[in-house]
Simulated assay, not measured.
Amino acid sequence: MHNSWMLRRRELLGLAAGMAAAGALPGCLSRSTRESNAGTLDARTFTAERRFLKTRFGRIAYVERGSGPAALFLHGFPLNSFQWRGALERLSPDRRCVAPDFMGLGYTEVADGQDVSPASQVEMLVALLEGLSLPSVDVVANDSGGAVAQLLVTRHPERVRTLLLTNCDVESECPPPAVLPVIDMARDGTYVDAWLTPWLADKPLARSEVGIGGMTYSHPSQPTDEAIEYYFAPLVRSPRGKAWVHAYTLGLEKNALAGIEPALKRCRVPARIVWGMADTIFSPSSADYLDRTLGNSRGVRRVEGAKLFFPEEYPDLIAEEARRLWGVASR
Rank of each mutant, 00 (worst) to 15 (best):
residue 153 V to N: 00
residue 198 P to M: 01
residue 196 L to R: 00
residue 12 L to S: 13
residue 312 E to H: 12
residue 181 P to C: 06
residue 150 Q to H: 04
residue 319 A to N: 05
residue 319 A to F: 06
residue 331 R to H: 15
residue 79 L to K: 03
residue 33 T to E: 03
residue 100 P to S: 12
residue 74 L to G: 03
residue 58 G to L: 00
residue 186 A to T: 01
residue 82 F to V: 01
residue 289 Y to Q: 13
residue 246 H to C: 07
residue 57 F to A: 14
residue 5 W to E: 09
residue 204 P to L: 09
residue 290 L to D: 05
residue 61 A to K: 09
residue 219 H to P: 06
residue 139 V to D: 01
residue 163 L to E: 11
residue 193 D to C: 14
residue 328 V to C: 15
residue 154 T to W: 03
residue 1 M to I: 06
residue 210 V to M: 13
residue 96 R to H: 10
residue 19 M to C: 08
residue 111 A to G: 11
residue 329 A to S: 14
residue 317 L to T: 00
residue 108 T to G: 00
residue 181 P to W: 02
residue 169 D to Y: 04
residue 15 L to F: 09
residue 21 A to F: 03
residue 150 Q to E: 02
residue 23 G to C: 02
residue 308 L to N: 04
residue 115 D to S: 14
residue 41 L to T: 11
residue 316 D to E: 09
residue 25 L to S: 02
residue 154 T to C: 09
residue 82 F to I: 00
residue 248 Y to T: 00
residue 158 E to Y: 05
residue 70 A to M: 07
residue 197 T to Q: 13
residue 17 A to V: 06
residue 219 H to A: 10
residue 166 T to Q: 02
residue 27 G to P: 08
residue 259 G to I: 07
residue 297 S to L: 05
residue 291 D to S: 12
residue 237 R to S: 11
residue 18 G to F: 11
residue 164 L to T: 00
residue 171 E to D: 15
residue 254 K to P: 00
residue 314 Y to M: 15
residue 288 D to S: 14
residue 260 I to N: 08
residue 83 Q to P: 01
residue 61 A to I: 02
residue 255 N to E: 01
residue 124 M to G: 12
residue 304 E to Y: 13
residue 217 Y to N: 12
residue 296 N to T: 03
residue 118 P to W: 07
residue 146 G to F: 02
residue 171 E to Q: 14
residue 160 V to M: 00
residue 305 G to P: 08
residue 23 G to L: 02
residue 219 H to R: 14
residue 244 W to L: 13
residue 113 G to P: 03
residue 297 S to G: 11
residue 309 F to G: 06
residue 308 L to M: 03
residue 20 A to Q: 08
residue 107 Y to A: 15
residue 124 M to V: 04
residue 298 R to S: 15
residue 120 S to P: 02
